[in-house]
Design a protein around this nucleic acid. Sequence first.
DNA 1: TTTTGATTTTGTAGCGCTACAATGGCAGAG
DNA 2: CTCTGCCATTGTAGCGCTACAAAATCAAAA
Lengths: 345, 345
Amino acid sequence: MTKSRDMAGPVTMHSVAKAAGVSPMTVSNTFKYPERVQEETRRRVCEVAAELGYIPNHAAGNLASGQSRVIGAVIPSIKNSSFYKYVRGMQDAAAQGGYELVLQIADTKRHEMAAIRTFIGLRVAGLTLVGNEHEDQAADLLRKTGVPVVEAWVHGDPLDMAVGYSSAAATRAMVDHLVAAGRQHIGFVGYAGDVAGRYTERLPAFEQRMREYGLEPHLCHLADEADGFGAGSKALDALCRMGASIDAVLCPTDIVAAGVLFECGRRGWKVPERLAVAGWGDYEIASEISPQLTTIQPNAYEMGHSAIEMVIARSSGLSVQMRTRDTGFGVVERASTRLAPIGVD
Amino acid sequence: MTKSRDMAGPVTMHSVAKAAGVSPMTVSNTFKYPERVQEETRRRVCEVAAELGYIPNHAAGNLASGQSRVIGAVIPSIKNSSFYKYVRGMQDAAAQGGYELVLQIADTKRHEMAAIRTFIGLRVAGLTLVGNEHEDQAADLLRKTGVPVVEAWVHGDPLDMAVGYSSAAATRAMVDHLVAAGRQHIGFVGYAGDVAGRYTERLPAFEQRMREYGLEPHLCHLADEADGFGAGSKALDALCRMGASIDAVLCPTDIVAAGVLFECGRRGWKVPERLAVAGWGDYEIASEISPQLTTIQPNAYEMGHSAIEMVIARSSGLSVQMRTRDTGFGVVERASTRLAPIGVD
DNA sequence: TTTTGATTTTGTAGCGCTACAATGGCAGAG
DNA sequence: CTCTGCCATTGTAGCGCTACAAAATCAAAA
C-alpha cells in the first residue's frame, strides 16, 4: 500500500549538493543565477536534481531572501465564465514574468479578508483583488505590509494600483444605444450582493443618463445574485410588478440577461420586439443564445494581463508611474436590442 | 502618494513579543497552542498583534515545523460552472478543518505539472487534482515527496487517494434512459482534449451498452472542447455528416448540450421530438434553458468536501483505510429527452 | 616566476518561526 | 522552612535557503 512513499528523507539543496559533489551554494546559484555557474557544473547539478526529484523549498527561499515569485489573486466567483479571460490574462502575464499565480475564491468581504490574510501569511510577491470595496482591516493591513496590490474591474481611486474600465461610462453608452434604438421605458437590474464594488457605479450613472434624456429612470430592481439565470426571471417579475410597462431592460450580467430571455420565452414575449434585453460581460452564451445578446465587452484578458504586469513592476522595485490603467470597454450590438420596438405605451 | 506604505519595518513575532513584554515563544504559543498561555497574557498578546497588524509568516512557520495549513487544488477550468460546487465543497471542508485552500487553473497536462511543482515548492499540506491522467514526472514526484494527493472526478486506481463516481456507470445509466424513452439511433459526443481523464471511460461504456441492446454504437464525434456552446453545433454537424440519422445525442457537458439545443433551434428541429438531448454535469443552465436538459448530476459538492477531508486525514497522520470514495451520481430526467420520438428511420 | 584580474566556488550568517528542553514561580505536603 | 509537583514562561538550536564576502582557481600579463 504505502510502499515506496516517503522512504528517502526529504530532498534538500544539501543532499543535491552532496550527490553532485559541490557546495550547497553552487546548487542555489545553479537555479537562481545560472550564468554564475560553469556550464559543466550546472549540467551535472541539474541532472542530479532531476534524478532526486528535487524541488526548491519556496518557503525557505522566501524566508532567506525576503522575496517571492508567487502572486496571489482573489476572485469573487467561478460560477460563470465572467472571470475566465481575466484569469487567463493574469496567468499569461505571470508566466511571462517568471512568476506563479495562485487563486482564492472569495464571494464575500469576509472571505476576501481571509484570503488576503492567507496570501500575506504566504508572503506573496503581490496580489490582485476584484472591486474596490473591502473590509476596513483589509485596507489597513495592505497598507501596513506594503504588498503590491492591484484592484481590478474598477476605475480610479485605488488602494495602491487599479486597472479596469468605467462602469459608469459603459452604462451611459448602453443607455445611449437603447435610446437610439427607440426605447423609452428602460428597466435597470442592479446587484445588491456583498462584493458589489464593480456594480455600484452603474445605478447612479443609469439614473443620471436617463434624466439627461428626460426619461423616467426609476425602473430598477436590485437582485441578490448577479450570476444566476434565476435572477433574470425574478428581476423581470419585480420590474413588471412595479407597474410601468418596460420595453427594454439592462442587466448586470449576461447570465441574468439570458435568464430574462428564458423568462420572456416562458411568457411568450418576443425579443427584441416586445422587450429589448442588454447584458454585460460578453460571455460566450451572449453570442450563442437566440436572440444573440447585446452586451458590454470588458477586455477582461487585458485587464488580467495588466494587473499582473503592474504587480510585477512594483514588486521588482521599478518605479511605477501609472498607478491606474484603463483597459476600456466596447458595446457589442446584437439582435436582442436591434429592432425598433412595437409601441407599448 | 506612497506615504505611509512600508514605513515601519516588517512586523515579526519578535516585534510583537517586545511590544507585549513577553518572549517570542509566548507569542508563538499564543497562536499555536492558546491553552498553554495564561488568559491574561494571551489577551495582551492578541491585542498587540492586532494593533501592529501582525500576520504570522507562514513560510517561516512551515520551515520550522515542517507542517503546513495550506492545501493546494488544481482544477482544469473555470470557464463554466462545472467546478463551482466542487470548489465550494473543498473550501467548506478546508475551513472546517482549519486549513486554507488555494487554487491553480491548469487546462493541460503540462500546466498541471507546473501547478503541482508550484504547490510542492510551497510545501502545501496536500493537494487535489482532477482526473487520473498526469505527466509521468508528476506521478514520480508525488510519490517521491509523499504529499497527500487526492484525484477527484475519477473512480478507482488512485495515485494515492481518489474520490468520484463511475463515469462508465453514469454513461450506461444514460443510455438505459434514452433507450427506455424509445431512442434507437443515439449519437455520442466525446471529448478529445488534453486533460481528458474523466472523459475516457465514457466512450467504451457507451459502445458496450449499445451493443448489449443490439444497437449500432458508432455514432460518435470527439469534440476538441468540452466547455463551449460552439462545440454543440460542430458536433451536431459532424454527426449528421456521418450519414445515419440520429434521434438522440449524449453530450459530454451541459454546455455542449445547450449548444446542441441552440443549433437545433437554428435548424428548426424540435427537442425532444426530433432529437433527444442529454447533457452532463447538472449545471444551472440545464434547468433554465428551454427545454430543460436531462443530465447527469455528479454530487460535486460532496466530492470536493470528501477530497479535502481525505487530504486532511492523511496530512494529520491519521491512518487512512479508505483510499477511495464513491460519491455516486444521479440521472436527472427532464424535458429534453422525455417524450417518445417521432419515427425517423 | 610572480603578479594581476577575472571567473568560479565556497564559507558564514541569519531570515522568522517552532520543537524541545530547561527555567522560574508558586501551591500544598512533609 | 524545605521539598515535590505542576504550571507558565523562556532559551537554544535549527528548519532550507540566499546575500554577501571571502577564497580558490586559472589564464594571461609582467
